[in-house]
Amino acid sequence: MDIKGRVIQLLALQTGEGKNGTWKKQDFVIETDGQYPKKICISAWGDKINESALQVGNEVNVSFDVESREYNGRWYTDVKAWKIDALGAGGYESAPVASGTGSTSTRPTTELPSTFQSGDEDNLPF
């Protein structure tokens, strides 16, 4: 699943040692656009943490999985990001962001069709 939103909070980076070695986890909260904005806390693990995209105020597109598990009769749900992309201004995707490089916006052109050129205000196409 994918969701677009603005990063509104970064929680503390968590690290530790497990049986498979060192791990790190970054939780962050995004807020969606729309009539009824939603706040969603999402977790990114290991190399999925895109530090250049995860800055408060950045617009991001997050690809994620939702998983629930039961423990002692209670259910817990995780939202785990597997891809985080920064979006350019206006919600259009920008080129992939890499450390130390700029990004080029890939915005669509917004040219009006010839039927909407100036002087045609009274001629609606419908």
Rank of each mutant, 00 (worst) to 15 (best):
L54N: 10
Y36Q: 08
S52C: 14
T77R: 01
K39C: 00
R69V: 11
V56C: 15
L54S: 10
S43Q: 10
W75K: 12
N72V: 01
N58R: 15
N72Y: 06
W45C: 03
W45Y: 12
I49M: 09
V60Q: 06
W75R: 10
I40M: 11
K39T: 03
E59L: 14
D65F: 00
I40L: 13
Y76I: 12
V79D: 04
D65Y: 02
K48F: 11
S52R: 15
T77Y: 01
V60Y: 01
Y71H: 04
V79G: 02
I49Y: 11
S63V: 06
D47C: 00
N50F: 08
A53G: 05
I42F: 12
E51P: 06
N50E: 15
S52V: 12
D65R: 03
Q35V: 04
N50I: 09
Y71C: 03
N61C: 12
P37V: 05
E67I: 06
K48R: 08
L54G: 09
R69H: 12
S63T: 13
N61P: 00
R69I: 10
I40H: 00
A53F: 04
G73M: 06
E59I: 05
I42G: 04
Q55V: 15
Q55A: 14
V62G: 02
G57L: 12
S52T: 14
Q35C: 00
V56L: 13
W45Q: 07
S68C: 09
D47F: 01
N50Y: 09
W45M: 11
S52I: 13
C41N: 12
I40E: 03
G73E: 13
N61K: 11
K39Y: 04
N58E: 08
D47V: 01
I40D: 02
E70V: 08
E51A: 12
S63A: 15
E70G: 06
E59H: 09
Y71E: 08
D78E: 13
I49K: 07
Q55M: 15
A53E: 05
V60M: 04
I40R: 00
G57A: 13
Y36C: 00
F64T: 01
I42Y: 10
Q35T: 05
K80C: 05
Q35S: 04
V79L: 15
S63M: 14
F64G: 02
V79Q: 06
N58S: 14
V60A: 03
T77I: 05
G73V: 03
K39I: 02
G73F: 04
K39A: 02
R74S: 13
A44S: 11
D78K: 09
